[in-house]
Design a binder for these strands. Sequence first.
DNA 1: GTTTAGCACTCGACGTAACTGAGTGCTAAC
DNA 2: GTTAGCACTCAGTTACGTCGAGTGCTAAAC
Lengths: 348, 348
Amino acid sequence: MEITGRDQDILRATILCYIKTATPVGSRTLTKISELGLSPATIRNVMADLEELGYLEQPHASAGRVPTEKAYRFYVDHLLGPTLSAGEGDGLLALRFTPSEDVTDTLQEASRLLSLLSHYAGVVVTPRFSSQRFKRVEFVRLGERQLLAIFVSEDGFIQHRRIEMDDAPSANQLRQIAEELNSRFRGQDLHAIRATLVEEMREHKHRYDQLMQQILDAAQGSPTQPPGDLYVEGKTNILDFPEFAEAEKMKALFKTFEEKYMMMTLIEKSLDGDGVRVFIGSENAALGVNNLSLVLANYRCGEHSYGTLGVLGPTRMEYDRVIPLVDQVARLLGEFLTHPARTDRAAG
Amino acid sequence: MEITGRDQDILRATILCYIKTATPVGSRTLTKISELGLSPATIRNVMADLEELGYLEQPHASAGRVPTEKAYRFYVDHLLGPTLSAGEGDGLLALRFTPSEDVTDTLQEASRLLSLLSHYAGVVVTPRFSSQRFKRVEFVRLGERQLLAIFVSEDGFIQHRRIEMDDAPSANQLRQIAEELNSRFRGQDLHAIRATLVEEMREHKHRYDQLMQQILDAAQGSPTQPPGDLYVEGKTNILDFPEFAEAEKMKALFKTFEEKYMMMTLIEKSLDGDGVRVFIGSENAALGVNNLSLVLANYRCGEHSYGTLGVLGPTRMEYDRVIPLVDQVARLLGEFLTHPARTDRAAG
DNA sequence: GTTTAGCACTCGACGTAACTGAGTGCTAAC
DNA sequence: GTTAGCACTCAGTTACGTCGAGTGCTAAAC
């Protein structure tokens, strides 16, 4: 069942060739391109074996072979190890990264960088706000029964939420609440704060119960409000690949991009460890398209909080180039978000 | 040079037929469809005249005729007058409009409504913030030299802007400034406030000069920050029309949508009066596509401020249906934004 | 003078058939 | 185990004929 050394070489060569040309790879082509010194007939035999094992398939009887998802999976998991560390050096990358003072701008910039350097689409999901460290809250009255709560996190993310109330608290009450929250909870994340307060409320019931509850709920975000945001840059890069040349495929791709929310939850759910992970083709079935791959990594944002970024491209993606790129950008962005001053000085 | 009554009828019939079928219209087809009681030969003669005048053209010698932009222009300007008032009644429309407490959600909802009812794409541009009436400002310190200013308008729009400072004002100073601005300027628009303050500063120079200046600049918005936002809903509706069936056309459309900023400035610039206006084909050259039309109207938002909304579709658009729709949605939205309570009660 | 019928002509769309070439599988020889 | 040779397959392209929608023009009818 396992694949021998030479078979692996041929599989790798087939995949690389297909990634480059997007056309089925024939045995003759491989003899020319690869340095294996084998005749077409030999390669044909091997390819027939690989097809039987499910790594290659033929679009039609008299065509060359095309790698299956299983092949890409194997390639990424087993054939790519040694190449990966040889990224093009962080230094060069850092030069092209121009972070802004505004965190969301910086994230968008990271997305743009990913798209630019990968030639695919760059994606960045903001960290879940509720897992970030709280810095400050401020209230603004919008009307008799409406309040605007502005939450600022230590890392510079800002969210405002409208709060509907039954009672209208006085300006003083609001200031009091804000001050209490600001002085007591700075540096903790919203999850923790919420837990503490819920506990506390149970013990000493005081006047602000309901309002406080609403404020905390608002901070957590309601299920209808997405918990973060998604930046996708360079969508049009993907259009130029031949796999989306037909109108139908293109329309499907278009619809995928429209469903921003779908894509965001997919990306958010799919990753909760360290390092780069690759999701190939139908592993992203939720996208509604089965010839897209995602190369994702978490980036650090402060001590406890993570967001996700990566590259979206055709299954036939240059994984060997993209994986180290995603890794590096994630590190770079994490570095900047966690120690803005240092990176700032370096970049400015 | 002018077109006689019967010629107009034939032109109208041709346009209507082409809008419906998207295929070149022949003389025979017209005799069947229209109620003119004329033979194909007669219609051929008239069509030949219309072609000479630039209202029709033939894709190739032995095909039917297709309306030119000039024809659509003429149709919209002169042949559509009587039909327009006969919209499908505001009542029905109002029922399908479900405004939210959040203004931006409401705008997005309006865009969705436009897309849903027109079967094209709905677009909404938010009002320029700087022309809205000021309600309140609040400051949050983000760091040693960073300040967050939150501006709230009377109509419920919220904007926050980061401000970089040389000096760090104390919490007291900030509160003082906020209170001064809030008590003195409520209800005026930012343009006016700025003018007043600039004047005042020239007379009595006081401590906050520079900071105040920065705050005002932030409120106005910098040139790099777009002055508003754009919501486009139902992009995929447009994909299904045969004029975008070819991959190339579709790609161009895609790229148009990517350039959100371009589209927004185009829409913002093109309208500054009352009522519905129509921009046909190459009149929207800035979009990079020349077979799209825009039907736009301003909506009122408070007393002095306007935003723009409308429908984006192929040149071959059902103007007779879309124009009253855009008109009505603009009114409805304006009504809601200006007197939220009244509309709210009616809808809830 | 306007309208209509008739007719020859044009030209894209569609379908069929033949050809080409890239690529395979198999068998036999090295 | 590897390679050379050969027959076979099949998508893609080209060439060609047919079809039909539609036109322009001319001459007759109203």
